[in-house]
């Protein structure tokens, strides 16, 4: 990884590779060669309908948030779940910040609403979910296969899914952190998989450096990429930055998802990363939504299409 050899160069390279995209940008990774095409939603539907396996990526529901530009994220969560159900997904990945303030009532409300959608859902913790009492209220509710620390893996539809936690034990002045314990887990977990197995890694904070001054990246992501290097198709799904972003590095496709609650500014475009409060009327739902991920070919390629609530 050139990130290791030349950290500064690698960072610049990462920024150059960053692609800004609105809805309907479809990435496929076939045989390690990424191709992108802008699709109308009909075309996107037709293409993904060929695949037998699809799932949904939702993130940053932030129940408990109640300010501009979205005084009631429950409504937009419900709309997002309606959209998710319309895709008839095999499962849903929630990449964290389920709640705004880690409060039990927020967790209860979120799970009540999300469970109502009757989609099998797997959760990764966001920093807003584990900020109090070592994450007690998160881990009490989302133990599905999780070890202490909230990381786990499972297989479905021929895809190997790995959930990582990069939001605990954050250090002052640093970005997200996976840590040695999870690296060991991952190394063992991946050892038994063939290189042709499609891998999906999901975690809250982006697993590549999006914007270091705002902490939008993960300190030890280069180590993670080394463990994933031998796999032909790796899809990384993250939240935290409340906007879609994509990057391709070798066989690894990185994607972030929108929030269902409020959008955040493009990196460095505003003094801070807080919610975009001054949205023109009618713009909010263009910046909120989910990702649909589907297996478009039989060779393990996964396509990620963002699906905003409007527009």
């Amino acid at each position: 990884m050139r990130n290791d050899e030349h950290p500064d160069h690698g960072r610049r390279h990462a920024l150059e590779c960053m692609l800004w995209a609105g809805s309907g940008l479809l990435w496929t990774v076939a045989g390690g060669i990424p191709r992108s095409s802008l699709l109308g939603s009909a075309e996107a539907h037709a293409q993904s309908a060929q695949g037998s396996f699809s799932f949904v990526h939702i993130s940053d529901t932030h129940l408990g948030f109640n300010m501009a530009p979205n005084p009631d994220p429950v409504v937009t969560l419900r709309e997002s779940l309606d959209r998710a159900k319309s895709f008839n997904p095999a499962l849903m990945l929630h990449t964290g910040d389920i709640t705004h303030l880690s409060r039990p009532g927020e967790f209860d409300r979120a799970t009540q609403i999300i469970n109502g959608a009757r989609i099998e859902t797997h959760y990764a913790p966001g920093e807003h979910d584990v900020v109090e009492d070592d994450g007690k209220d998160f881990y009490q509710r989302f133990p599905q296969g999780a070890r202490t620390g909230g990381f786990y893996s499972f297989d479905q539809g021929g895809v190997h899914f790995v959930c990582l936690n990069n939001v605990t034990n954050l250090q002052a002045g640093k970005m997200g952190m996976i840590g040695a314990e999870q690296m060991r887990f991952l190394e063992q977990d991946l050892a038994a998989r063939t290189a042709s197995t499609p891998i999906v890694v999901f975690a809250h904070i982006p697993l590549w450096v999006v914007h270091e001054p705002w902490g939008w990246g993960t300190e030890d992501s280069a180590q993670l990429l080394r463990l994933l290097a031998r796999f032909g198709s790796v899809t990384v799904l993250n939240g935290h930055i409340h906007q879609t972003m994509q990057k391709i590095e070798g066989h690894v496709a990185f994607h972030t998802g929108m929030s269902t609650a409020f959008p955040q500014p493009a990196p460095g475009s505003r003094p801070s990363a807080g919610p975009i409060r001054d949205l023109p009327p009618g713009e909010l739902r263009k910046l909120l939504g989910i990702n649909r991920v589907s297996r478009v070919q039989n060779d393990g390629a996964l396509a990620v299409v963002s699906s905003p609530l409007e527009g």
Binding site: M67, H100, L101, S102, E127, H128, V131, E132, L170, Q171, A172, G173, K174, M175, P213, W214, G215, A273
Partner: peptide, 27 residues
């Protein structure tokens, strides 16, 4: 965790330099 308008206070009895950060936004 401090929501908008919430307050935290701490009394510093002993001399020294006390560094701190936000564990939600470590920068």
């Amino acid at each position: 965790i401090m929501d908008t308008t919430e307050v935290f206070e701490f009394t510093f009895a002993a001399a020294g330099t006390y560094s701190y950060f936000c564990s939600l936004h470590p920068h």
